[in-house]
C-alpha cells in the first residue's frame, strides 16, 4: 500500500515537473517531426519496407534522446532528493512507466506524421499497434537502465547509444519482424509466437533490472 502511494506521488511529481518545464516531451516531438520531415524529403515515394525501416530507426534515435533524460537530465540536488526519499527500484519503475507512456505518445505521433507525409502502407493496423505497445516498454526498460549506468561516466551522451543500440538490436529484430507482418496484413495466428517472445524478453529484462538497479543506484 505504501509502495503504491509512493508510486502515485512520484508519478504526479514527474507529471508536474514535465508540465512546468514543458520542454522534454515537446522537444522530443520536434526532434521526431524534424527527422520525419527530412526523411520524407529524401524518400518521397517511400517503399513500404523503407517506411518501416525509417519508422523504427527514427523511434530508436528518439527513444535514446527521450530516455537519456531519465537519469542524465537530473540535477544533483534532485538526485539527492530522490535518493533519500524513495527506494531505487520504485523510482526505476516509475521512470520505466513514464518512459513507456512518452514513447507511446511519440510512436502515435510518428505514425500520424509519417502517414500524412509519406503515405500509410500498413495493412493490418491492429498488429502494428500491438507491436508499438510491446516495443514501448522494451525500449524504455533497457534505456532507463543504460541511462542509470551512464550517469557519472566521463562521456554519458556517447555511452547511451554505444550501450543501448547493441542491447536493443535483439528487440528491434522482433519488432521489425512483427511490423513486416502488419505491413503484409498477415493472420493473427502467425503473430502470436513473436508477440509472446517479445513479452518474454520484456519480463526477463524487467526482472533483471529489478535485481540490478539497486547496485546502479548505490553510491
Amino acid at each position: 500500500m505504501q509502495t503504491v502511494r509512493t508510486m502515485l506521488l512520484l508519478l504526479r511529481h514527474e507529471w508536474l515537473r514535465e508540465w512546468r518545464q514543458g520542454q522534454w516531451l515537446a522537444g522530443s516531438l520536434l526532434y521526431l517531426a524534424g527527422g520525419i520531415f527530412a526523411a520524407q524529403l529524401m524518400l518521397r515515394p517511400a517503399g513500404p519496407l523503407a517506411w518501416v525501416a525509417i519508422y523504427w530507426l527514427l523511434m530508436l534515435f528518439a527513444s535514446v534522446y527521450v530516455l537519456s533524460r531519465t537519469y542524465l537530465g537530473l540535477s544533483n540536488g534532485l538526485l539527492m532528493y530522490y535518493k533519500v526519499s524513495t527506494p531505487g527500484v520504485t523510482l526505476w519503475m516509475i521512470k520505466v512507466l513514464t518512459g513507456t507512456l512518452s514513447l507511446w505518445v511519440l510512436m502515435a505521433l510518428a505514425t500520424i506524421l509519417m502517414g500524412v507525409w509519406m503515405g500509410y502502407p500498413i495493412q493490418n493496423t491492429g498488429i502494428f499497434i500491438l507491436t508499438q505497445l510491446l516495443a514501448g516498454p522494451l525500449l524504455a526498460t533497457v534505456l532507463t537502465l543504460v541511462s542509470a549506468m551512464a550517469r557519472g561516466a566521463a562521456n554519458p551522451a556517447q555511452l547511451m547509444p554505444v550501450l543501448g543500440f547493441p542491447l536493443l538490436v535483439p528487440c528491434l529484430l522482433l519488432v521489425h519482424r512483427l511490423s513486416r507482418m502488419a505491413l503484409d496484413g498477415l493472420e493473427w495466428s502467425v503473430v502470436w509466437p513473436y508477440a509472446v517472445a517479445m513479452s518474454a524478453l520484456l519480463v526477463m529484462i524487467l526482472a533483471l533490472g529489478t535485481l540490478l538497479f539497486p547496485f546502479l543506484w548505490r553510491d
Binding site: M149, L167, L208, R218
Partner: peptide, 13 residues
C-alpha cells in the same frame, strides 16, 4: 560496480 551490472545484463541479452 557499473560494469559488473552491465556484464550481467549483456549476458542475458
Amino acid at each position: 560496480r557499473i560494469s559488473a551490472a552491465y556484464n550481467i545484463l549483456a549476458f542475458f541479452c
